[in-house]
């Protein structure tokens, strides 16, 4: 089993993400430079946070044209696991691998802080080691994390149990005050139709070791490892 971490010009959480896989999950991992279409036989793709292409035009808008993204699209279509974190979520939305868009935060400010998210489904290869309703403490760091989609898309997401995480209070209540960025329906992360692609704004890569203030985010990586090794998952 091998993980691949995409690297775009402007990615800045690529090493954090790599470190979690290599040092905490103890799994093989390699960087994948955006300019090559090869996924080097990786079994899971991680699209890290940062500012790919400087966020020029729109966040994630130019990254989707990179050669590696054409391969990632095919990999995802074939059922491969793809996790997009923060800027990675924005890229996956722009690339059409996930529905909706990440807009400017409602308060118009860059927000960098610890938040709580509630697990909305355990039925995915990214959340199988969590239980529904479980609250995680994870940090966010973004300017454009305000999830938006049209009503019919939202209905589809909810009907098919594709909302993975919602911003919540520490006790798991979904309130307007717990919503840091104005996201529709407090949405912090969503799954694609095949449940093999997850995009989320909060950073599990920055919350996988206690020394960083929380290790709650590691469950997402652990779930992926379990899914890939057949130990658990769907």
């Amino acid at each position: 089993m091998k993980f691949g971490v995409l690297v775009f010009p402007g990615s800045n959480c690529d090493h954090d993400t790599f470190n979690v896989v290599a040092e905490i999950a103890h799994q093989p991992v390699t960087f994948l430079w955006h300019d090559s279409p090869s996924l080097e036989n990786c079994d899971a793709i991680l699209v890290p946070g940062g500012f790919a292409y400087g966020d020029y035009l729109r966040t994630g808008a130019l990254a989707r044209f990179s050669p590696v993204m054409q391969s990632v699209r095919k990999f995802a279509d074939d059922g491969g696991l793809v996790l997009g974190i923060c800027n990675g979520f924005q890229i996956l939305c722009e690339a059409g691998l996930l529905p909706g868009a990440l807009m400017r935060n409602a308060g118009l400010k860059y927000i960098c802080k610890q938040v709580h998210i509630r697990t909305e489904t355990a039925d995915s290869p990214f959340t199988s080691t969590l239980r529904k309703g479980q609250v995680l403490q994870v940090p966010i760091g973004h300017m454009d994390g305000n999830y938006f989609c049209d009503q019919s898309t939202l209905d589809t997401l909810q009907r098919n149990d594709r909302v993975a995480f919602r911003y919540s209070t520490p006790t798991g209540e979904i309130t307007p005050e717990a919503n840091p960025n104005g996201s529709l329906s407090n949405i912090a992360g969503i799954l694609n139709e095949g449940r093999n692609v997850l995009g989320m704004m909060p950073h599990p890569d920055r919350s996988s070791e206690r020394i960083l203030g929380s290790a709650d985010g590691f469950a997402i990586f652990a779930s992926m490892v379990a899914a890939l090794t057949g130990a658990a998952g769907r």
Partner: peptide
């Protein structure tokens, strides 16, 4: 295709 995100 490029200058707009048709979602928003």
């Amino acid at each position: 295709d490029i200058l707009t995100n048709p979602v928003i």
